[in-house]
Design a protein around this nucleic acid. Sequence first.
DNA 1: AGGCGCTTGTGAACGCGTGCACAAATCGCG
DNA 2: CGCGATTTGTGCACGCGTTCACAAGCGCCT
Lengths: 250, 250
Amino acid sequence: MSQQRHGSTSGNGARAGAVSAFPDLPEATIARLPEYLRALHNLGEGGADTISSEGLAAAAGVNSAKLRKDLSHLGSYGTRGVGYDVALLIEQIEYVLGLDQRRAVCLVGVGNLGHALAGYDGFASRGFKIVALLDADPAKVGERIHGLIVRHIDELPAVAVEETIAIGVIATPAGAAQAVADELVTAGVTSILNFAPCVLSVPANVDVRKVDLAIELQILSFHEHRKASLTALPGGRSATGAGNQEAVGS
Amino acid sequence: MSQQRHGSTSGNGARAGAVSAFPDLPEATIARLPEYLRALHNLGEGGADTISSEGLAAAAGVNSAKLRKDLSHLGSYGTRGVGYDVALLIEQIEYVLGLDQRRAVCLVGVGNLGHALAGYDGFASRGFKIVALLDADPAKVGERIHGLIVRHIDELPAVAVEETIAIGVIATPAGAAQAVADELVTAGVTSILNFAPCVLSVPANVDVRKVDLAIELQILSFHEHRKASLTALPGGRSATGAGNQEAVGS
DNA sequence: AGGCGCTTGTGAACGCGTGCACAAATCGCG
DNA sequence: CGCGATTTGTGCACGCGTTCACAAGCGCCT
Ligand SMILES: NC(=O)c1ccc[n+]([C@@H]2O[C@H](COP(=O)([O-])OP(=O)(O)OC[C@H]3O[C@@H](n4cnc5c(N)ncnc54)[C@H](O)[C@@H]3O)[C@@H](O)[C@H]2O)c1
Ligand SMILES: NC(=O)c1ccc[n+]([C@@H]2O[C@H](COP(=O)([O-])OP(=O)(O)OC[C@H]3O[C@@H](n4cnc5c(N)ncnc54)[C@H](O)[C@@H]3O)[C@@H](O)[C@H]2O)c1
């Protein structure tokens, strides 16, 4: 039990006072903001100063109406007849996502996958910093990867004291994932990204997101199956198929 | 343009005749079926013969009503007062997902991430088989990884002839992803799993799914930001937070 | 055979997300 | 200074997905 949905359905919403008034963004919107952000960075590097909703939507692979509605939830940062100021919009989205402060990431499980993640430069460039690599295997402990030394999982509490860990990444086998998650929670981590193919039970105040390769492949397999059974039918050639672009993770 | 949604909104649906009558499953349902399948395999190995919707829902991390509705779309494979036959349900879900036939996967880009994917045993155990590893770097070509030899990307057409590729996986830098996608499509691949952080343009009959780490982290970052700004407010301790478990991929 | 408890399957209500279509707003130009 | 072109911001309607609640069905026990 205990796994609910994000549901910001708590009725606390925005009070009369202008204390902090955190924007009560729809979950679907915040899932797309990173995509907009990446598109904006690309456009900015391309020398663009302003961008229309149509242009940005194309770059992000979404409908322009959806994009405008998403951005309108952040406030009015566009100019009618002109478009959005790229630099300003980047700043706003980064603020909302909390990327203005570099967040510390702790990676647990330096195996096949963990090794690749540890060497990924896409972390640093997006505002994250891996501050610790942890593993239970004594043979792995001490190994140096991209300037970081692998430490033993038992040192997690110590690591948490040295630096406030914002996000814990689990890249251990499924059998160890729940135990690792428990330890992360005990150490004060309130956001977990789980690569192990299993369900995690965590307290209500902890956010868990899961990335599961096999699920993605199986969904694609379904559509292959469907397409195959369709082309084998009367209908005709193609035309019935539907392209898509499901955003999933990174 | 060109990127629409899955939308099986084509009105062809189920004809009067019982030709193949492919179940017109909601997209949200098929995204959860792999999760149910994994839970069922675990339960089966645990010696369970039958399982109630409540039990299976708990194992898969979802609401039991949702699970029953999902399964009801496949037909009536449960027994009232008893539950679902584990083996039968596994068989049915695997059939619907098209996992009864082993699907060939082609991995393009054997770098940091591609190396990890190539060595992942989670593919084989879920009904997939990597049949080719491709890369553009001459230094990588010829390398042996887990019994497969890395071949040059130019050999893709030849590979496609040798074996029908069901799914292409892109693990190249973002700059090369669109070109690789085009080559995959030309080679006849109609399902793509993209790890590069960019939007792909593909014909309407090709399915693309994307896995983006950075997006996952940024979503978690947002919730960290939100939680931080909440605990700093009058309210009280916690209780307002919301646990969750977003399924994403694998 | 009948009744009782348990579990599935589903009708109905609700809420969220999407997309259309347009009014409001801004810029540039004559 | 006013007008038209352009683009944002949003009210509204629709469809999908989720959840509740319960009738129908099944097995077991007496
Ligand atoms: N390799 C991939 O491409 C891939 C893809 C998708 C998902 N996954 C999943 O990611 C996870 C890791 O996969 P992998 O291929 O890297 O496996 P791996 O066996 O290569 O690595 C697992 C690592 O976790 C460490 N570990 C085990 N128990 C631990 C514990 N209690 N605390 C800390 N560390 C512990 C092990 O020492 C090992 O180094 C698995 O759950 C796998 O299903 C892997
Ligand atoms: N490493 C990670 O943990 C990680 C995580 C998430 C996403 N990604 C993304 O996955 C992709 C790969 O990451 P990586 O760390 O493995 O990078 P990498 O540079 O280590 O590997 C890229 C590989 O692609 C090959 N390649 C380049 N152009 C090619 C082409 N046209 N055809 C075929 N092969 C080509 C290169 O030779 C190289 O071997 C990137 O887009 C990255 O953003 C990586």
